[in-house]
Design a protein around this nucleic acid. Structure first.
Length: 484
RNA sequence: GGCGCGUUCGUCUAGUGGCUUAGGACGCCGCCCUCUCAAGGCGGAGAUCACGGGUUCAAAUCCCGUACGCGCUACCA
């Protein structure tokens, strides 16, 4: 493998949404390509007309873009090897299948669906492997021409020679061997004239000069068919790397039934793309050290197929939440501001009117306390509206006999302040506690309760400063009135 | 059923024959810090490395077998 340009592809079928497992496959392809200064190509495998979903391609593209996995070549990008939609490449497949037929490597099959089902049932009853019996391979040329002229529905099948050892090398798993006897004469061209995945994928990968086929483990079993096709065409085989599967908690292949599998679901839940990418990158790969937090650039630098695991990984969200918090914490405040404003517009506080400076103060104060942007609202609603009620437990624990008096004095003293800073509140509070010979908590806790209605939150001086003098005075008054 | 792939703490994983009384991370528990909650620091519980044979002075690591799990077994991808 000389200095040839590395070219890999992500080849999803447009089923309506991007599966999280698909995102990981795309990511590994992307990381590998970028690490090798190669190209990442997106090809849409839309050869199954029954599964056509309106708008699926656009959706796929936008989700991939959100995740930061822009294709160097693809349906909406430029590229010299298009079209990148298989449904637009029918002529190409047709031209290539002819060569195979001429060489006897593929053949027409006119068997009806009924005969095929019957055959399969018979084989099942005899408990032998279910596969096509090459019935139509023995048709004479005249018979074939006759049937073709009669427009008898037909498919084209791969002609697999019996009794051959087929092996290929997998970067992740090493050498894998199959006996050709266990491989079916796969349909290459369906009766509607569309190719199957097996045929289209090989033709396209060759024509698009794909050097490495990186895909899910579920393709291992059909790889011998693909490998045979390369050999039949006399084409150089790409390198294969079959990724371990993403699993449900019960270890079955990650599926819709057991939780969210669409990338959009995670977008909607408020996960940061950097966190999601970081998380799925670590599901099946690691650099061999203890590093857990990665940016995309760091992933590109560190990634290698050799260090991808063989065993499937259960998709478990605990770590994702932690990574999201980590990534959110290292996001600059001005970026969080933009996300927070968006979140506010979607919340009950959509009419809340305030300056960016106000939100920035909240962001800074809450930064260590949130894992998601929306928690800047959920965990501290008191920044957006006065407390409606006071946490019963906190009242019981923190509201003492002297709380009323202390708050009254404190309130009257801060009232005198002009444009108070955080330090001014602190000075006054400390002085008052000194005078009364009490610990700071004696005043701090009731004050927090009065201001926020709850017993948890940012530092008290941040809290009072952010709310501001007027608002704080109002809230203290109200609390004095309502908490008994 | 056939074929293929896999199997280290609950989960993600390190480990490529001696450095391993199997390391880290998430989660969980405790302590410290402290105005609360977090964050942070420190510590703890948690894996007879699926099982059984072999090879070797020495095996989680190499070989064989078994079990279990998963994938494929379509004119789906």
């Amino acid at each position: 493998m000389s200095d040839k340009e590395i070219r890999v592809r992500f080849a999803p079928s447009p089923t309506g949404y991007l599966h999280i497992g698909g995102l990981r496959t795309a990511l590994y392809n992307y990381l590998f390509a970028k690490n090798k200064k190669g190209k990442f190509i997106l090809r849409i495998e839309d050869t199954d007309r029954n599964r056509y979903v309106e708008g699926a391609v656009d959706n796929l593209l936008s989700t991939l873009n959100w995740a930061g996995l822009q294709a160097d070549e693809g349906p909406k990008s430029s590229g010299d090897y298009g079209p990148y939609l298989q449904s637009e490449r029918l002529d190409i497949y047709n031209e290539h299948i002819k060569k195979l037929i001429v060489d006897g490597k593929a053949y027409y099959c006119f068997c009806t669906q009924e005969r095929l089902t019957e055959l399969r049932e018979k084989q099942k009853k005899e408990v032998i492997q279910t596969k096509y019996d090459k019935h139509c391979l023995h048709l004479t040329e005249d018979e074939i021409i006759q049937k073709l002229n009669d427009k008898t529905p037909n498919v084209i099948r791969l002609n697999i020679e019996p009794n051959k050892e087929i092996f290929f090398n997998d970067i992740i798993r090493g050498e894998v061997t199959f006996s050709s006897d266990t491989i079916d004469d796969q349909v290459l061209i369906k009766s509607d004239g569309f190719p199957t995945y097996h045929f289209a994928n090989v033709v396209d990968d060759h024509l698009m000069k794909i050097t490495h086929v990186i895909r899910g483990e579920e393709w291992i079993s059909s790889t011998p068919k693909h490998v045979l096709l390369y050999d039949y065409f006399n084409w150089e085989r790409p390198q294969f790397a079959h990724l371990p599967l993403l699993l449900n908690p019960d270890k079955s292949k990650l599926s819709k039934r057991q939780g969210d599998v669409a990338v959009e679901d995670y977008m909607q839940k408020g996960y940061l793309k950097d966190a999601l990418i970081n998380f799925i990158a670590l599901l099946g790969w690691n650099a061999g050290d203890d590093k857990e937090y990665y940016t995309m650039d760091e992933l590109i630098n560190a990634f290698s197929l050799e260090r991808v695991n063989k065993a499937g990984a259960i998709f478990n969200l605990d770590k994702l939440d932690w990574l999201n918090a980590e990534h959110l914490r290292s996001t600059p405040n001005d970026k969080i501001l933009i996300m927070l404003k968006d979140e506010i517009s979607k919340s009950n506080y959509s009419n809340f009117d305030c300056t960016d400076e106000y939100l920035l103060l909240i962001i800074e104060a809450m930064k260590e306390r949130v894992s998601f942007v929306k928690e800047y609202i959920e965990k501290c609603p008191y920044f957006f509206e006065p407390p409606i009620e006071y946490d019963e437990k906190v009242v019981k624990k923190r509201w003492k006999d002297d709380s009323q008096e202390l708050l009254k004095i404190f309130s009257s003293r801060i009232e005198q302040l002009v444009n108070p800073r955080k330090e001014d509140y602190e000075r006054i509070l400390k002085k008052l506690c000194e005078e009364k010979e009490i610990g700071l908590g004696r005043l701090i806790h009731p004050l927090r309760l009065a201001l926020s209605g709850v017993g948890i939150g940012p530092g008290i001086f941040d809290l009072i400063f952010i709310l501001g003098k007027e608002e704080s005075l109002k809230r203290i008054d109200k609390a004095l009135d309502q908490i008994k």
